[in-house]
């Protein structure tokens, strides 16, 4: 018995000359939060639309909860909740009326929808606001209403397309706590979530992430494993003046990359050289007329990993996919 809720193989979608999705394969297990991470135009939204059956792929196959999305589209869809970037709600209807609308469209009967809606409103923390007009909700509450609407049919697979764009960190934190709870809640027939985002701090909350670029997944692993690929190879340097620090760091033979971050530099060194670089860099900087406030090895961030992966010259240090 396979435990994958989503199995997509070699998906391709072309729009004229543009290869929006260019050979994406994806397996998402039950109970997993999978992050599709990349910039606007990398193919995240198109991938989601293919998974939900809203677009037909030029090539490839997709199964969701055992249904072939291309041939059994309706059955497959009944297992999916989808919160699109442009989620729209009826601003002049109340919270409960909005959910009822979504429930009825998805075929929930009159006896089913009310208890289910109340349960889901309680889960997202909107039960006290059920009679408020959607137009009167704050941004964070609107987003929770969107989530509630996507969840009203008890989907096994939840697709969230950049759900936290434009909301503040507190609201975003709350939203993520809900998503993680949702996945943890049902042990046996667990829910899976696929979430898209261009932000690395969000990516780091997923169980597994796929970095997307030009319609392809260029790397896929757990955030911990991705970071581990650069373990011990990222140094943080604070001091001044910045141009001296940058110049000296760049000229070191074991330094592969230097990235400025406001008040500090992140320096990526080649495998096994961090001790040596830590030792000599401070001296070199002082000799060049600069000063070092702090130089230390730091845990690599996903941002460091993404940049290293995009860096053609050095991508050979990573094991090829497959």
């Amino acid at each position: 018995m396979n435990d994958y809720l989503v199995q997509a193989a070699n998906l391709k979608k072309y729009f004229g000359e543009t290869h929006a999705v260019d050979g994406v394969s994806l397996q998402v297990a039950s109970g997993e939060i999978y992050g599709l991470v990349g910039s606007d135009g990398a193919g995240k939204t198109t991938t989601m639309r293919l998974l939900v059956g809203a677009l037909k792929p030029n090539e490839g196959s997709i199964e969701v909860c055992g249904y072939d999305v291309l041939r059994q589209t309706e059955q497959a869809r009944s297992t999916i909740g989808y919160l699109s970037q442009r989620f729209s709600m009826y601003e002049d209807l109340t919270v409960l009326e909005n959910i009822r609308f979504f429930a009825e469209v998805r075929g929930l009967s009159a006896t089913e929808w009310l208890p289910r809606s109340m349960e889901i409103l309680e889960f997202v923390g909107l039960e006290k606001f059920k009679d408020r007009r959607a137009g009167q909700l704050s941004g964070g509450m609107k987003q929770k209403l969107g989530l509630a609407s996507a969840l009203v049919t008890r989907p096994r697979l939840l697709l969230l397309d950049e759900p936290t764009t434009g909301v503040d960190p507190v609201t975003r934190q709350d939203f993520w706590q809900l998503v993680i709870k949702l996945v943890g809640a049902r042990e046996g027939d667990g829910v899976s979530v696929i979430i898209s985002t261009p932000y690395m701090d969000e990516a780091s909350r997923c169980h597994r992430v796929g970095f997307m670029k030009n319609g392809q997944i260029i790397a896929e692993d757990t955030p911990s494993n991705l970071r581990a690929r650069l373990n011990g190879r990222v140094l943080e340097l604070r001091g001044g003046p910045l141009d001296v620090l940058r110049r000296v760091a760049h000229s070191d033979a074991d330094v592969e990359d230097v990235q400025a971050f406001g008040d500090r530099l992140h320096i990526r060194v080649s495998e096994g050289t961090s001790k040596a670089v830590l030792k000599r860099l401070k001296k070199e900087i002082t000799e060049a007329g600069g000063h070092v406030d702090e130089l230390r090895s730091v845990p690599p961030g996903l941002e460091d990993v993404f940049i290293a992966l995009s860096d053609h010259e050095y991508s050979s240090v990573f094991q090829p996919m497959n």
Binding site: V37, G38, S39, D40, A42, G166, V167, D168, P169, P198, M200, K213, L242, D243, Q259, A260, E303, F306, I307, S310
Partner: peptide, 29 residues
């Protein structure tokens, strides 16, 4: 909405401007 590679290229430009004496205030969430 861009990935770290594009963001970084943009910020390298910003630092270059700042070194030339331009002051920069960035609003963001």
């Amino acid at each position: 909405g861009v990935d770290p590679t594009a963001r970084r290229a943009f910020w390298d430009l910003i630092y270059q401007l700042a070194e030339g004496g331009v002051t920069i205030l960035v609003t963001t969430h």
